[in-house]
Write a protein that binds this DNA or RNA. Structure first.
Lengths: 225, 225
DNA sequence: CTGCAAAGAGGCGGC
DNA sequence: GCCGCCTTTTTGCAG
């Protein structure tokens, strides 16, 4: 009797190598010792001995061809190509994984927005939710609402500590689009940013363009409800 | 006689583990087999057997403490913490790298912009360069120029294949700021986007706000000059 | 597939 | 340090 276990393997090579990438840009990684990770879905990573980011990589779905001293990786659909010239292989081993548990995240912006949708009073009194990820011509509004007068109120939610100026213009862009929609029958639209904090230039931009701001963090919202 | 070689090492563990991250969010990576990479600068990566991105990570500069069956990684400055519970270690080895060559990239936006700065004629005739990364109140303009009439012309350069609507508003934001600067003595400012391609909504937005567009890619610019 | 925005984004350059 | 923005961003989601 056999028991079939869904097994996934990855190959890990530590080698002195030269790597060339061509596709979205052209890049050459000069001779050095690197960790090369080849995953079973075609993803490839080239890591140096320091630094968080990989020096080179190829996406999942890549095709891999091996010749002596050379690993070719291709992603034809985007015309990307990676060549790993192996000068000296220090180690080369396969690792078989039989178990792959999920990654569970708590506290993302989506959650913040979900929670805020049922506590609109924390933003302003007498707001009614019209839609989440409400679609406009120029992108989705986090929380589309109307106030007691039936005027549209666009709410943009950010979870990041420091929010930059570009957000004021993101909000203005949505307001511009919402202002052109017929369903509001010409009533003026307002915009409100909800975030834990602002950059100084953003503070100025919000004032200049008469955009609202409510200081609120995910932590504050969860602990107070 | 001793020869001192600057050596950099990284540790590579393949293990069945549970990982908990707390800091910017809270996350739990459930029991599974993962590749754990610990670099000599404190960077830590947790990779599953598939997928390009690490499931968890910690930045370079992190502090690492090891106990039996547990690796604690901390980044106190940002109050981030990672705990790796090692249930079963399949392999654990150190890799010493003696050589670390540079990564040389060709074709980034900076280069595109540099090249365009000396070939302004490809954008429009009779433009004069005023500055690169020209600072305004709301962010840096890629190429600040003036036309033959002394009117300011803001040029935004994008290298990506498909550019989204938000770029039209980035340009409008710069135009708004430039329009308030005294040095132009009230002359009207124009904006031009240079990119290889546009999304359909962006095409509409550029027309609606009377922004210019020049279709040009890094490849085209290099081959034609 | 297109289009847009979030990400524990990371990393760079300027001030 | 703050601030804005580019990235071979990657990833996810909706129409």
């Amino acid at each position: 009797m056999f028991v079939l276990i869904y097994v996934r393997a990855m190959r890990v090579i530590f080698a002195r190598c030269i790597v060339r990438y061509t596709g979205r840009i052209d890049a050459e990684l000069e001779l050095g010792d690197r960790l090369i990770v080849v995953k079973d879905d075609g993803a490839v990573l080239i890591h140096a001995t320091s630094g968080l980011q990989p020096k080179n990589w190829m996406p999942a779905g890549s095709d891999l061809v091996e010749e002596p001293g050379l690993i070719r990786v291709e992603f034809p659909r985007r015309d990307e190509r990676l060549e790993i010239y192996l000068i000296q292989v220090h180690s080369d081993s396969d690792h078989v994984g039989e178990l792959s548990g999920r990654l569970v995240k708590l506290g993302s912006e989506r959650e913040f927005s979900d929670l805020l949708a049922v506590h609109l009073g924390r933003v302003e009194e007498n707001l009614t939710l019209v839609g989440r990820e409400y679609r406009t011509r120029v992108g989705p509004v986090d929380l589309m609402t109307v106030d007691a007068d039936g005027c549209p109120v666009v709410i943009e939610v950010k979870r990041a500590r420091a929010v930059g100026v570009e957000v004021a213009y993101q909000l203005l862009r949505y307001l511009h689009a919402v202002g052109q929609e017929e369903r509001w029958e010409g009533r003026p639209a307002r915009g409100i940013l909800v975030a834990p904090g602002l950059s100084r230039p953003l503070t100025a931009a919000l004032a200049e363009h008469q955009l609202g701001f409510v200081r609120l963090s995910f932590e504050k919202l969860t602990e107070a409800t």
